[in-house]
Simulated assay, not measured.
Amino acid sequence: MSSLESVRRPALSAEVIARLRERITSGDWPVGSRIPPEPELMTRLQVARGTVREAVRALAHAGLLDVRQGDGTYVRAVSELSGAVERLYGGSDIGQVLEVRQALDLQAARLAAIRAEEADLTVLQGALRRRRAAWDERDFEAWLAADWEFHLGVADAAHNPLLAELYRNLSGPVRESVAGSWTDPDYQGANPGGHEDLLRALRERDPVEAARQADANLTDTHDWHAVRPPRGTGS
């Protein structure tokens, strides 16, 4: 992990905020990890307690940090946008999450069918291979990671940085919405072949079919939950 350099000029909370944010956005402090305790931050940054507390409060208000009294301060999100999404929509009704995904997934699929490069398609093929292997082994964490990698890969393949960034910042609510179905013994995956069919449409440069497959995947997921207790979604 890269070190925190001390503040060499009169301490400004803005500079301390920038130093802490850098550790978060760079991945030095991953989401879910506990940041160093207050005394350590004071020593490493060479600033007063009040300055550290002010910076932590600002980042907590922005949604990047979660201050837990008696436990410590944890990284909640990697950007202000993802923090806001997590704060506002974390735990949202599955239908709301699917509605937002429909807007993003279909447009990402259309654009990816037009703009995807061979390297993008290779990434997607690898994600599907890992996803299938994890499903067969009933390895939920690996399956969830590969499933998210595929969907994010489609967004990246659209080669629209803003769309991809918006999709990345939905990761918390989307991953939460996926988790519940895995433990349902009747669940066999929403449209198991849909991901492979979507990738085929991207390879064939067919934006209409790509959007149709993306929509079918979400529709199957919605229909599953229409007849089941709300436990999450399949993909």
Rank of each mutant, 00 (worst) to 15 (best):
S3G: 00
L4N: 03
L4P: 01
L4K: 01
S6P: 10
P10F: 06
P10A: 11
A11R: 11
A11P: 12
L12V: 11
I17D: 13
D28T: 00
D28K: 00
W29K: 00
S33D: 06
I35T: 01
P36V: 00
L41K: 02
L41S: 02
M42V: 10
M42D: 02
T43R: 12
T51H: 04
T51Q: 06
A55N: 12
A58G: 07
L59Y: 10
A62R: 11
D66R: 15
V67P: 13
V67G: 03
V67F: 09
Q69E: 13
G72V: 10
T73Y: 01
Y74N: 06
Y74D: 03
A77E: 12
A77G: 11
S79P: 05
E80V: 13
E80K: 09
L81K: 05
V85S: 03
G90S: 15
G90A: 15
G91Y: 03
S92G: 05
L98Q: 15
V100P: 03
R101C: 07
L106G: 08
L111Q: 08
A112E: 02
R115C: 01
A116N: 06
E117D: 15
E118I: 11
T122W: 01
V123Q: 09
Q125V: 02
Q125C: 01
A127M: 05
A134G: 06
R138P: 05
F140K: 06
E141P: 08
A142M: 02
L144M: 13
A145P: 10
A145W: 08
A146Y: 12
A146F: 06
A146H: 10
W148F: 15
W148I: 12
E149R: 12
F150S: 03
F150D: 02
G153P: 10
V154P: 02
A157G: 09
A158Y: 04
L162I: 14
L162H: 14
L162R: 15
L163H: 11
A164S: 14
R168T: 04
R168H: 04
N169V: 01
R175T: 13
V178Q: 04
A179L: 14
G180N: 05
D184K: 07
Q188A: 15
Q188M: 04
A190K: 01
P192A: 07
E196V: 12
D197C: 04
L199G: 07
L202Q: 11
R205G: 10
E209R: 15
A211G: 13
A214E: 05
A214G: 14
D215K: 13
N217R: 14
T219L: 12
D220F: 11
D223V: 09
W224G: 03
V227R: 06
R231H: 05
G232E: 04
G232Y: 06
G234P: 06
